[in-house]
Design a protein around this nucleic acid. Structure first.
Length: 926
RNA sequence: GGACGCCUAGCUCAGUUGGUUAGAGCACAUCCUUCACACGGAUGGGGUCACAGGUUCGAGUCCUGUGGCGUCCACCA
């Protein structure tokens, strides 16, 4: 067996094992009949994306879940893949094209441009999947999917045709969120409202015929103009009316009259009434610009007003904006419009103003409401989607997200699924040649001689033209949990083990895409997967785990522009993949955002090193025996020979197993990592390994102690493996836990983890009766040790080892301490612990086993000693007072549960004993 | 306007159904390279648990309110 080096060097270990795992196809999801399954589909990253901290967190969580499932003996399958990411990828390639060749996509034409995108994808795509391998992700790579794969594309189009035939998809001219940068419509979810500083312009709209109104006192006064306010003066040329509230007394006389439009073509526009107008805002009048505002559009519909569009798709002004503004960019035009209005006297004032403006989430520019023909989807299964979550068939973790989810579904709006892009799934709709797409009526849309909708297109393609638009990317990824498992092709589903792996077990994702993706997947699953089957077979997943967002130390979202995001690959180089994984999970409590702290990652690395060295110590202490199974290790342990330390460490191990089990059920990964840390570092290294140092000196106890170590390390490696797969695998082999069997047992993951239940059962059949009191005695010894060390530290002889301790104690306690002398003297750093009945004039501490004196061979300074003891006495006295007052309170003694009462009484007794001993020590000093 | 989350040591966070003297890691101070580990060991300092009320024998924990930070949904031009 190879010798374990002085420190853990992750680099070579990681390379070696990942290659070995892949070679052996360890990650293949291959269900055996009757075997329980556990499946996860990856939230597909953008095909051209690169790994950032959010991915690291999200994918580490998935890997932890899937590896734990493997150890639990389940057929585990983690399906990886990427998303074509329509807008993002197309924009990227367009930019590249512009930069390198000075061309636009239109210069190339659709077919040629798409060729370029594909070659870009082939060249630069899937890099992120490579990076996930470095992180240790155990995806079943043979199943890698891509949303633009032929098979997956077919599932997307199948879904479209199905929904169309069901009457849920329709085409309509409606107000959409238009992105002037990407030149496409967006869904409401892709629009982000941002408070934006600008100006609000107070304007006069002159009445064609002066009239009268009433002032606040009810007096009739002349009225020559209306006052209204707008943030968008550049759209005035597209005003078609001015609206006031029907109940507004100020405007009674002028309803139906006209005002002069102050910009663009100076025509008369009518004054209308509409309840959408807020009387208290501005001058109480609203300019109505149906082409450029949702509310205005609705007012226009109600009043049969014309629609004038004064913007080009790219956000520049067109000829309808008037000669002053035509051709200008929209924000420049806004300034210019203000100038023109000021010059004509229509502008009263421009006030600084902040309002919410919709921005394109991806392109980062303000969107324009724009009236266009688009394809819309009425969501299927909305009620059922709510019900499965309410019924807990789909459980969200943390649960509070269900409320957000249900609220969204309660207010759900039809989904604009068409995008004016080229990179994506082209909508499988064909128009008969010669028809005007803009003016198709609902009846036309239902006429198969005018519109053809199918997977493969019309049989006489020469007579048809295909729809130019592609589908929203999310209209493909919403099929991910079953599209990746062969749906809708029966043979493909069989080959992909659809039956075993659908519904998937857990979806791990960020709450930021709860609407974009999670909700839509639930509806899609219910509609398409296992049609006709009971609802629990149609849901796409049973659990949704929402991981937090990784933020920087100031709490800001990590972003490229801020440059506050460390490169995960650099972190892997510096701390190892295991250190990164473990450190990150330690700071990621359920559902809380993660403030990134590199120190924690370093802590993860240090922990790995600690584990490494504990194993090194084990190896140095003696020949390895047969470690190839729990049974062989237990065979080396005689239950009758277990001492307190053995009992205590086994109890702590069992407790750790239990905590881990619960943590996985509750998705509490931070709890799990913290428990692993404290068990191994504190319970095992700081105590068990330290006491082992004396036991291995004794041939009688040596083999026994090493066997316990082998047992604990084995179980710990199994518990730790999901979090740190590389180092555990390496140590598994170095310490001989692996079996030579090349099929079963070659890797750590081939083994089964013990549950508390099975572990207990195994121990019981071997005659282990764990002594529950042992842990308590060990805790007392720990306290004794700490007090002794404190004495040494106080006397600044912390490192001296030739000191002697003297103990005044009872016969029973002395027997116990004396029997533990070998390990205690080593732990404390003392030549000996002797029993005494005298009152040595030495520094003393009151321990659970009597009063302990430190003899350094130097005479004690009574004043220093007095100060030390007095301080201790003060603390004790304070606590005694607190406890006494509680116990003297009848309300407490009569109402508190017996256990609490007993605890308080015992505490008081202990404190009093300690106090009187301290008082005695103080008295002895003088 | 509506909903949700957070506020505990200098920093990042634990703290389960209310119950002894509120914990960890990092940072800090003192000491130590003694034969697993300086990526380490020992000891120590450091907290009116955001604030104000309330319920209770007892509140970091439950209730009400206030303040601050953050997120989502809706949105008055």
């Amino acid at each position: 067996m190879a010798e374990i080096t002085k420190s853990y060097e992750p680099q070579d270990v990681e390379k070696k094992w990942y290659a070995a795992w892949q070679e052996a196809k360890c990650f293949a999801g291959t269900p055996k009949p009757g075997q329980e399954t556990y499946s996860i589909v990856i939230p597909p990253p953008n095909v051209t994306g690169i790994l950032h901290m959010g991915h690291v967190l999200n994918n580490t969580l998935q890997d932890v879940l899937i590896r734990r499932a493997r150890l639990e003996g389940k057929a585990a399958c983690w399906i990886p893949g990427t998303d074509h990411a329509g807008i993002a990828t197309q924009t990227m390639v367009e930019k590249h094209l512009k930069k390198t060749e000075g061309k636009t996509r239109h210069d190339l034409g659709r077919d040629e441009f798409l060729k370029r995108v594909w070659s870009w994808r082939d060249e630069k795509g899937d890099k992120i999947l490579q990076q996930l391998r470095e992180l240790g992700c155990s995806c079943d790579w043979d199943r890698t999917a891509f949303t633009m794969d032929p098979a997956y594309s077919r599932s997307v189009l199948t879904a479209f045709v199905h929904l169309y035939q069901k009457g849920l998809i329709y085409r309509g001219k409606r107000m959409v969120n238009w992105c002037p940068a990407s030149l496409t419509a967006l869904s409401d979810e892709e629009v982000e409202m941002r408070p934006t500083k600008g100006h609000i312009y107070r304007l006069r709209y002159e009445l064609v015929t002066p009239s009268t109104t009433i002032d606040e006192e009810g007096n009739t006064i002349p009225l020559t103009h209306l006052i209204l306010e707008t943030t968008r003066p550049e759209t005035i040329a597209a005003d078609v009316a001015v609206a006031v509230h029907p109940d507004d007394p100020r405007f009674e006389n002028i309803v139906g009259a006209s005002v002069w439009r102050p910009l663009g073509e100076r025509i008369q526009i009518p004054i209308i009434t509409d309840t959408a107008v807020e009387m208290g805002f501005g001058g109480g009048a609203l300019k109505v610009t149906p082409a450029h505002d949702r509310v205005d559009f609705e007012i226009g519909q109600r009043h049969n007003l014309p629609v004038i569009d004064c913007l080009n798709p790219d956000g520049t002004m067109n000829e309808f904006a008037g000669p002053e503004l035509a051709g200008m960019e929209r924000f420049a035009a806004r300034k210019k419009a203000a100038d023109v209005l000021e010059a004509s006297g229509a502008l009263i004032e421009a006030k600084p103003y902040e309002n919410n403006v919709g921005f394109s989430q991806r392109a980062g520019v303000p969107i324009e409401p724009r009236l266009t023909q688009q394809w819309w989807l009425k969501y299927p299964r909305v009620e059922e989607a709510k019900q499965v979550v309410r019924d807990g068939l789909v459980q969200m973790h943390p649960e509070r997200w269900t409320k957000v989810y249900l609220n969204w579904l309660d207010n759900i709006q039809d989904w604009c699924i068409s995008r004016q892009l080229w990179w994506g799934h082209r909508i499988p709709v064909w128009y008969a040649k010669g028809i005007d797409r803009e003016t198709l009526s609902p009846a036309d849309l239902a006429d198969p001689t005018k519109i053809h909708v199918s997977l493969d297109g019309p049989s006489d393609p020469e007579n048809w033209t295909q729809e130019d638009d592609v589908l929203d990317t999310w209209a493909s990824s919403w099929l991910w949990p079953f599209g990746t498992l062969g749906w809708p092709d029966a043979d493909a589903q069989l080959a992909a083990d659809f039956k075993a792996f659908y519904p998937t077990t857990t979806l791990a994702t960020g709450a930021d895409i709860i609407f974009f993706w999670v909700a839509r997947m639930i509806m899609a699953g219910l509609e398409f997967a296992n049609p006709g089957a009971p609802v629990e077979e149609r849901i796409p997943f049973k659990h949704v785990y929402f991981n937090g967002i990784v933020r920087d130390k100031q709490g800001r979202k990590m972003s490229k522009t801020l440059g506050n995001s460390p490169d995960p690959l650099d972190l892997i180089k510096a701390y190892g993949a295991d250190g990164l994984r473990f450190g990150l999970l330690q700071m990621a409590p359920l559902g809380q955002d993660v403030k990134f702290d590199e120190g924690r990652i370093e802590g993860g690395k240090n922990f790995c090193n600690k584990l490494w060295n504990a194993c090194r110590f084990r190896q140095m202490n003696g020949e390895m025996n047969d470690n190839t199974s729990l049974t062989t290790i237990l065979g080396r342990i005689d239950p009758a020979l277990l001492d307190d330390d053995d009992h205590a460490i086994l109890a702590a191990l069992r407790d750790t197993m239990a905590v881990l089990e619960k943590s996985f059920t509750d998705f509490e990964f931070a709890t799990a990592t913290q428990k692993l840390y404290s068990f191994f570092w504190n319970d095992f290294c700081d105590w068990y390994v330290e006491v082992s140092k004396s036991k291995v000196q004794d041939p009688v106890t040596k083999q026994h102690c090493l066997a316990i170590q082998d047992l604990v390390i084995r179980e710990f490696l199994l518990l730790f493996e999901p979090f740190a797969p590389y180092i555990t695998e390496e140590l598994w082999h170095l310490l001989g836990y692996a079996t030579p069997d090349p099929v079963r047992g070659a890797f750590l993951q081939d083994n089964l983890i013990e549950t508390v239940e099975t572990f207990n059962a195994v121990l019981a059949t071997r005659g282990f009766v764990l002594d529950a009191a042992a842990s308590g005695r060990v805790e007392q010894l720990k306290a004794f040790t700490t007090l002794a060390r404190q004495l040494k530290a106080d006397q600044t002889v912390a490192q001296k080892r030739d000191v002697t301790f003297q103990l005044i104690t009872t016969d029973a306690d002395w027997t116990f301490i004396d029997s533990s002398a070998a390990k205690l003297t080593r732990l404390i750093g003392a030549a000996a612990i002797e029993r005494t009945t005298a009152e040595p004039a030495l520094p003393a501490a009151v321990t659970p086993f009597g009063t302990l004196y430190l003899d350094t061979g130097v005479k004690v300074d009574p004043e220093v000693e007095r100060a030390r003891l007095t301080k201790e006495l003060g603390t004790i006295t304070k606590h005694i007072a607190g406890t006494e007052s509680r116990l003297s309170n009848v309300a407490f003694t009569s109402k508190a549960p017996p256990a609490v009462l007993e605890g308080a009484q015992k505490q008081l007794a202990d404190l009093q004993t300690k106090r009187s001993e301290l008082e005695r020590l103080l008295a002895a000093l003088s």
